[in-house]
């Protein structure tokens, strides 16, 4: 397929935790460009900086240096360039967490609709969008159920629906299929890809799951805080 706009542009990004003897360099001079429609995997051993990079792209973590441009908008250049990072997340970024992190007091449908609700959209629109996504991800029949009663796979699909609810152009996932069996994991990746293409979004996924490596456009390896060749 033809590649679209550049959605993620990370240049020379570094991140270290602590100072002096306790200093840990989680990322050193990382460059990464991701375009609309791309589905890429972040691979690497534990502690190589995958989560750190994902959190920087998601504007949850400030880099120690470098530059980040999201959807054409510079958001970090030595410092944050936007004050309302949460609004940026609400508008542009969908997160899929390792543990699904659904709100326990909302039903599956409400967990998805709440994103639109927070963005100030009409209740009806949120409900309709939630139904549409849940049906699409084949958990529509569980819409009225609270997370505690969902299976791991169902919860993860609800979390994916939530990440997609606001039609974000950047979807970030940290081991989204860790809780799923092989067949389901493949299915979930296929669904995510389909949605990404339809919504002209990109997906960056941290994974260890070799079963699904063939479903990515690109595999990016991190080793010791640096991009490495496969």
């Amino acid at each position: 397929m033809a590649l679209g706009d550049i959605l993620i542009e990370v240049s020379n990004v570094a991140k270290h935790f602590g100072e002096g003897e306790t200093r840990v360099d989680a990322l050193r001079a990382v460059d990464l460009t991701v375009r609309a429609g791309e589905v890429i995997a972040l691979l690497g051993p534990s502690g190589s900086g995958k989560t750190t990079l994902l959190n920087i792209i998601g504007c949850i973590l400030a880099p120690s240096g470098g530059r980040v441009v999201l959807d054409g908008e510079p958001v970090f250049d030595g410092k944050w360039l936007r004050r309302d990072l949460r609004r940026l997340r609400l508008d542009k970024i969908g997160f899929i967490f390792q543990s699904h992190n659904l709100l326990p007091f909302l039903t599956a449908q409400e967990n998805v609709a709440v994103v639109l609700d927070l963005a100030g959209r009409p209740t009806e629109e949120g409900r309709a969008r939630a139904r549409e996504l849940l049906d699409y991800l084949e958990v529509g029949h569980r819409a009225m159920v609270k997370p505690a009663l969902l299976s791991g796979g169902e919860a993860q699909r609800v979390a994916i629906a939530r990440a997609l609810a606001n039609r974000p152009r950047i979807i970030l996932a940290d081991e989204p299929t860790a809780a799923l069996d092989g067949a389901r994991a493949g299915l979930v990746m296929d669904l995510m890809r389909k949605l990404a293409v339809e919504q002209e979004a990109c997906i960056v996924t941290v994974t260890h799951d070799e079963k699904i490596f063939d479903r990515f456009d690109r595999l990016i390896y991190l080793r010791d805080g640096r991009l490495a060749d496969a």
Binding site: I60, R86, R89, I93, F95, N101, L103, V115, L118
Partner: peptide, 9 residues
């Protein structure tokens, strides 16, 4: 924290 992450003001 989850609410903040999904962008709640």
């Amino acid at each position: 924290a989850t609410l903040k992450l999904i962008g709640a003001p």
